[in-house]
Design a protein around this nucleic acid. Structure first.
Lengths: 364, 364
DNA sequence: TTGTATGCGTTATCAG
DNA sequence: CTGATAACGCATACAA
């Protein structure tokens, strides 16, 4: 029985465990790190002492000696509302859950002016405070992130890209989202499919439109410029744009919007014009937000699951930290969520029963 | 000119700086830690080399040697919506800002089942990963926090109390809030002041009611049990309660609610009853949420600034970490925000011009 | 399979 | 005012 006084404030060390178990420090260290070359008997003996003493290894010492660090810094934009925004909240949830599952730690940082100016993002690595960094909500102004392009430090962009800078990232397949939405409408029989895009300055809006155009081309549908308008992710603006679209000599039979809020704007307009969804016009949104299951009719949409993407970001980062580098860019598939706002187009229905000519005028 | 190769991946150490500056490691360490016994000349010399080399001290080594840790763990309740809730968002903002200002680090943790079961909250200290802990949104079930009652580890409760467990904390002066609200109404001339309380099971609701009762007693106003009802922090329930209150043979001339959402319920009821605020009845809310400046009439309320309280929590915690222990319980003053929903009571106005008798009946 | 010895990058106690 | 030198607690190459 050795001297066992201070087991709380002073901290009990590996040496103490070794003495108590009658083995060397190395042996204890080995069982701690699951080194295979330890007999089951001594392993159990050591483990028993460890749990009796409530021993916890000193992380600073461990990191210093092993040159590792299990802390991941999540960098958030310097916005007043970051913590209240649903998108950030979900991303944060995913990041937290995966970090916890991998037994890493999460350190929060805001990308303040000083953060960039003083190169704090690099200094965190130089001081060995973190093993990797996640960057959420980057904007095109974040040019300084090119410091991470050489791969010297484990770094991952969460669901975004920086043009001209090749950085590891996990990103939603926005292009695929546009394509899958258009394809769904094409398969239903639509030919005049309008697209109301988000702000053209954003990556996601552009990609969705590319996908939409590709799907149309693949189906041999000729491109009609008048069916593509900008809605800037804004409900009211989209409402107005929709009215214009429906006033065309040949109005669309289906509309695809860059996100769901814009689809709500379409619903607003169509309601005012007494145009029924999906009877007269099919509608498909772009990001499957929570409210979209609750509208009347419930909105068909394309899901880009930010929670899952966030988790994958953590996995990629840890791969980077631990040396499994490939692939450094991962695209997360989009998924079509079919609800009630899409259906076979009016014309086709008419065709089927062309004898009932009155139907054609209901929308007039 | 010495060998200067790897200044990034390998990390440059204090030894390298010492060599480059032609001094000893001790000297460099001293200037790093602002030890006074260093001549201005050598200090400058060393500082110059440090900035030239971009040297950053290894935090693990520093913490190991100095037995300190600048990381603070913020523990949040395991709620799906924590990151989306306005209260938590504001608290988190305050905590982050103050931690950053004090040059500490913020580590996020959720109080999961395992977190409590495995005593992870203690292990973080034992592993020397953190220097202190902040606990946000504690509930009465968090009995395990009594482990912190002996003060062995720096710990602060953010704007809450645990009955029967004396823990360091910063908390809004809810009692003062109740008192200041009641006093404001009393000073305006009200005598029949109703209180619609939040759930009695909560500390904040009870305290506000205590304060209200105290203010009434201090003013020599006799206690009328029928004027105190429970609204459970719920708008609809409060609406119903208000209708009952106003149907009393002697209805109140003023109402104080535990929080602002409940005050909205009062407004709902009074509007339905065509009772004017503040002409017929004065109304005062309890927590000054953002929407309260926008109602008609704008709501007089009592502010408990969670952002500021959160910052003070960090200051208290750092005081604890660094040894300046007193006081361990800090009460943050509440502040009356006077807007448009409180005024001199009807009766007094009548008195002033008692000749106009019709006025009395407007509310009937 | 286990033990010995050294290093990780600091801080801090002594001398000088 | 500055410089050796011994911790700090652990990991690991090398021996045994």
């Amino acid at each position: 029985m050795t001297k066992k006084k201070n087991n709380k404030r002073q901290g009990i060390t590996i040496e103490r465990v070794a003495a108590e178990a009658g083995v060397s420090k190395t042996t204890v260290s080995f069982v701690l790190n699951n080194n295979s070359s330890i007999s089951e008997k001594t392993r159990e003996k050591v483990l028993k002492v460890i749990s009796e003493l409530g021993y916890q290894p000193n992380t600073n010492a461990r990191n210093l000696s092993a040159k590792t660090n299990q802390t991941i810094s999540l960098v958030l934009p310097e916005l007043g509302h970051v913590f209240e925004d649903q998108y950030f909240a979900r991303a944060l949830s995913g990041i937290y859950d995966e970090i916890e599952a991998e037994d890493y730690r999460l350190m929060l940082k805001k990308a303040s002016y000083e953060f960039a100016l003083n190169k704090e993002y690099i200094n965190l690595f130089l001081r060995k405070e973190i093993g990797g960094m996640l960057y959420l909500g980057s904007t095109l102004e974040d040019k300084y992130l090119k410091d991470f392009a050489d791969g010297d430090f484990p770094f991952v962009l969460v669901n975004s890209t920086l043009e001209g800078i090749e950085l590891p990232r996990v990103i939603a397949d926005y292009r695929g989202a546009g394509a899958i939405a258009a394809r769904h409408l094409i398969e239903l029989g639509h030919r005049r499919i309008a697209h109301i895009s988000g702000s053209w300055s954003t990556f996601s809006a552009r990609e969705r439109q590319f996908g939409y155009l590709k799907a149309l081309a693949d189906a041999g549908i000729s491109f009609d410029e008048s069916l593509i308008v900008e809605g800037h992710f804004d409900r009211e603006e989209t409402r107005r744009a929709t009215k214009n679209l429906m006033s065309l000599s040949e109005p669309p039979t289906a509309i695809f919007t860059s996100n769901d809020v814009m689809a709500f704007g379409v619903l607003d307009a169509l309601k005012e014009m007494s145009i029924s969804v999906p009877k007269d016009v099919s509608l498909i949104g772009g990001d499957n937000i929570e409210a979209s299951g609750l509208t009347v009719p419930a909105l068909t949409s394309v899901e880009q699951p930010i929670y899952e993407i966030a988790r994958e970001c953590v996995r990629l980062l840890i791969d980077l930290i631990e040396g499994n580098d490939e692939p450094k860019v991962r695209i997360w598939p989009s998924k079509l969520i079919i609800r009630e706002s899409t259906a076979v187009p009016h014309e086709n229905k008419i065709e089927k029963r062309r004898n009932i000519s009155t139907e054609l005028s209901t929308r007039k």
